[in-house]
Each structure stands twice: as C-alpha cells, then as structure tokens.
Amino acid sequence: MGEFMKSQKFARFCNRFFTYAFLLLLSLIIIYPLLITVSTAFREANIVSFQLDLHSNWTLDNFRELFTNTLYKNWYINTLIIAVATMVLQVVIVTLAGYTYSRYRFKGRKYSLVFFLIIQMVPTMAALTAFYVLANILNALDTYWFLTLLYVGGGIPMNTWLMKGYFDTVPRDLDESARIDGAGHLRVFWQIVLPLVKPMLAVQALWAFMGPFGDFLLAKFLLRTPEHLTVAVGLQQFISNPTDQKVTLFAAGAFLAALPICILFFFLQKNFVSGLTSGGTKG
C-alpha cells in the first residue's frame, strides 16, 4: 500500500513538473522574440544584431525619427481611417445578414449559406487582376474607399457565418413572444435580439478593425504614392532593402502599431472566446 501511495505521489510530482516546464518553456518561446522587437525599438540606430540586449543604452530617438523624418504618421492615420470605415460598414452588413440567416426561414436560405461557405474559400488572389483593372476603370487606384470596400466585401462570408452562429444562441422564444405582443420586424431586431449579442458585436468590430491593420497584400497592390500607404506596407519598406535595413525604426513603428491592437484584443478577449465557441464550432 505504501509503495502504491509513493508511486502515486511520484506520478503527481512528475505531472506537475512537466506541466510547469512545458508552460514556462512555451512562454519563453513566445515572449523572447517579442521582447527582441520591443527592446530594439528603444536602442540606438547603429545596432549590429537583431537580438535581445538589455544592457546597451536606451533611447527614444527611433520614435522621434519616425515622426519627424518618415511618413509614419501619415501611414498610421491612413490605416486608422480605412480600419474605422471597414469596421462600421462590415459590422452593419454582417449583423443584418447574420440575423436574417438565424431568424428567418426563406426560400434559398440553405443554398445561400453553403454559397457563403464556399465563397470564403476563394483566395483573394483569384481577384487580384480584376481588382487592378476595376480600380483603373473607376479611377480608384491609390484611394481608400476602394480598399475599404474590398476589405468589407472580403470579410462578409466568414463573419456572417460566425454572426449567425451567435444569433442562434439567443432563444427564439424571446422574439416570438415579442412578436405576439405586436412588435414588428425592426423592433424585434433592434430592441430584443440586438442587445443580447453585444459581446459578438464587439468581437466583429475588433476583427473588422484589425483586418486593414494586418493586411499586406491588397494595400501593397493598390496603394501607390508613399504618403498614401498603410502601416503594414510602410513598415516593410524599412527592412525590404537588404543593404539598408532600418531595423530599429522598423521595431519602433511595429511597437506603436501593435500596442493599441494588443490592448483592444485583451480588453475584448473574454467576449470572443464565447463568440468563437458558439459561432465557430457546432458543439
């Protein structure tokens, strides 16, 4: 018996040891590269290697340089404009469509849902040439509204699915009893159901906002003049020239771009865990 207890205890110790070892190692692997970038943002421009170095001098020169001698401020404002516009449009459209697919049974519903699923698999690349020609015809090359429209349209299929899944979790009895009480289409939607999906609205807004911040392909392809670029395309220019890499400038710019997104993300993360598990899975 004693032997058994001992081996039980030993197994438990082993489990704990390896659990913590795993968690700590993984944490290290995640934090290390991030710390390199963050610390590089505060180092002098003449560094010789892109590595973690906490001993050399700290400075804010990179940030000063970023705002005085580069177009970083322009890029940042451009990205914000596009991101906010995308967010507003996409959330409205996706909410309406998701609500419809969750609440109404109408002809063609099932087929159009499958259609949404298929169409979100078509790679953006499939439309690249057409985007270019279209932009030429509409005189929309180098404009924000065109890019915004592309982001909105591209995000619709997948997010409609997720939104529909979340609407499905709101019991239908609620709107049915409201309807019996004489509430019309709009009232049921606006006053009964919509307040209950606020967490998912927040998630949708965040994702739509993050899209333009994270996109590289379309912005690179459609924006031309240096003042009109987004943060992603602009930052890449700092390190794309192998003979003249401005890694400290890049790191400083990356730090400023990632920080607000990161904060928003953690602020809302509770919401989207529930949003994802109800909308993205069929559990």
Partner: peptide, 10 residues
C-alpha cells in the same frame, strides 16, 4: 493579438 505582419517581419 499582435498583427501577423509585424511578427513575421520581426
């Protein structure tokens, strides 16, 4: 949480 292009470039 961090935009992918930033980490990839890093």
């Amino acid at each position: 949480a961090i935009p992918a292009f930033i980490t990839i470039m890093s």
